[in-house]
Amino acid sequence: MAQRFALIIDPVGSSEERADFSGTFTVVDAAAPALSVGELSTQRGDGVFETIGVIDGHAQEVTPHLERLANSARICDLPVPNQEQWRQAVAVAAAACPAGEGAVKLILSRGVEHGPTPTAWVTAAPVADFSEVRATGVTVVTLDRGYPLDVAERSPWLLLGAKTLSYAVNMAALREARRRGADDAIFLSSDGFVLEAPTASLILRFGDRFVTPAPTGGILHGTTQLSVFEYLSGQGFETGYEQVPASALSTADAAWLVSSIRLVAPITAIDAHSLPVDPLTAALTEYLLSPRP
């Protein structure tokens, strides 16, 4: 979707103690050129990002997103963003979103090559209508990500725990899934454990127990997954983080892909194994569409 709003954040002085950071934002024409040709975000994908869902002008799960942005920055040796500065920028951008559902994207780049400071900006835009996907579900295939489960600990330079701008592999995985006749994919480690989807977290149901792969081995800790677990715990269900072997996928009673924009998409088939759309899906969707801090 076309960007409707954009602002540039000045990182200089962002570490100062202040209540009002509005003077560090510059609203720019979202349709006009704004980045230098030497910008490393576009040359090398050298930066990190977050995408925050917006419901009727309310930005969802802002704190978990800002915490994950800061963690990604630390992993990538980028200056850790000032959370209050970015929180205020998110509020400005969310207010510019149209009624209904939208998205605010946060980008922190290493900046211009050999430049003195990073580049940071925020955009806002409407999003596609995912109501049908939330109701009828998606089919997925499993794809080998090519790394063992412990690779993030053994090889931290791979940046697998950071949400970086280098998303070419994720997009290639989605294209491969569609070539195989599916809507999406679930990554597996080379030693046979379930990881995540290219742009979503995975939740599996086994009876009244809900499980997501433990956020180790380069798995991002999903912000929407955290909200789903909060709701499920409030309803009396057991939730947990586990190392999930690939063989467990065929024994699940239900499964979902969850993310900030698509929210909750029930999985109706994993490879050749069919799954029902769990009646709980409607309640999860309603909860995720409600305002949350």
Rank of each mutant, 00 (worst) to 15 (best):
S131I: 00
S155Q: 14
R178E: 13
D10A: 05
F25R: 03
T42K: 10
S227W: 00
S36H: 15
L275F: 03
L226I: 04
S259T: 06
R205Y: 07
G38L: 14
V112F: 03
L174D: 08
Q83Y: 00
G100Q: 09
L143K: 02
A162C: 09
S190M: 03
A182N: 04
G207R: 10
H65K: 13
A89I: 07
P213M: 13
S36K: 08
L35C: 11
I52A: 05
I203L: 15
S189M: 07
F193H: 15
L66P: 03
L288R: 04
W121D: 02
T199C: 09
P64I: 06
A103W: 01
T139Q: 08
P81F: 05
A70F: 04
D253E: 12
L160A: 06
T164L: 05
F21C: 05
I203R: 03
I9W: 00
I267R: 01
G234Y: 08
S259I: 03
G207E: 12
G100P: 07
V169R: 11
A252T: 08
S190R: 11
L226V: 04
A31V: 01
A269Q: 15
S36C: 13
P198D: 04
L226Q: 13
L289A: 07
A34I: 14
F237L: 09
A32P: 09
V27A: 14
V141H: 04
L158K: 05
L106P: 00
R110T: 01
E113K: 12
A103R: 06
E153K: 14
E39V: 10
R262W: 01
V211L: 12
R205D: 08
F5V: 03
T224D: 06
A185C: 10
E196T: 05
L143C: 12
I267N: 00
E67N: 15
S189I: 06
V28H: 07
A59D: 08
L149P: 00
S201L: 04
F130P: 05
A6L: 14
V138I: 13
D208R: 14
A177D: 04
G222P: 03
S274C: 12
V127Q: 02
H65G: 11
V258M: 00
A103H: 00
